[in-house]
Computed example of a mutant assay.
Amino acid sequence: MTSNTNAPVVGVVGLGAMGSGMAQSLRRAGHAPHVFDVRLDVAEAFARDGGVACDTLAALGAQCDIVVSVVVNAAQTESVLFGDAATPGCAASMKPGSLFVMCSTVDPNWSVALEARLAAQGILYLDAPISGGAAKAASGQMTMMTAGTPAAYAKAGAVLDAMAAKVYRLGDRAGAGSKVKVINQLLAGVHIAAAAEAMALGLREGVDPAALYEVITHSAGNSWMFENRMAHVLAGDYAPLSAVDIFVKDLGLVLDVARASKFPLPLSSTAHQMFMQASTAGFAREDDSAVIKIFPGIELPAPDKKA
Rank of each mutant, 00 (worst) to 15 (best):
M1E: 07
T2R: 02
S3Y: 11
S3A: 13
A7S: 09
A7I: 07
P8C: 11
P8D: 11
A17Y: 13
A17V: 11
G19Q: 06
G21C: 09
A32V: 02
E44V: 05
G50S: 03
G50W: 01
G51N: 08
L57G: 05
C64V: 02
I66P: 01
V68T: 12
V70Q: 08
A75Q: 12
E78R: 14
F82R: 10
G83L: 08
P88S: 01
A91I: 01
P96L: 11
G97W: 13
L99P: 07
S104G: 10
S104D: 09
T105N: 01
T105I: 09
D107R: 12
V112Q: 14
L114N: 07
L114F: 12
L118R: 00
Q121C: 03
G122W: 07
I123L: 15
L124N: 14
L124V: 10
L126I: 05
I130E: 02
A134C: 09
A135S: 13
A137L: 09
G140E: 10
Q141Y: 00
M144R: 14
M145S: 01
G148V: 07
A152P: 02
Y153H: 11
A154R: 11
A154G: 00
K155N: 08
A156Q: 07
A156S: 12
V159I: 08
A162E: 12
M163D: 03
A164M: 05
Y168I: 01
Y168F: 12
R169V: 08
R169D: 05
L170E: 06
L170H: 07
D172W: 00
S178G: 09
V180F: 00
K181M: 11
N184F: 11
Q185I: 03
L187V: 13
G189V: 11
H191P: 02
A194R: 08
A196P: 05
M199I: 08
A200G: 03
E205H: 14
V207L: 15
A211P: 03
E214F: 04
I216N: 04
N222L: 00
N222C: 11
F226L: 11
F226A: 08
V233W: 12
P240I: 09
P240Y: 05
P266N: 05
L267M: 14
S268C: 15
T270P: 01
M274V: 04
G282Y: 05
I292H: 02
P296V: 06
G297V: 04
E299L: 03
A302C: 00
P303C: 05
K306A: 15
A307S: 06
A307I: 09
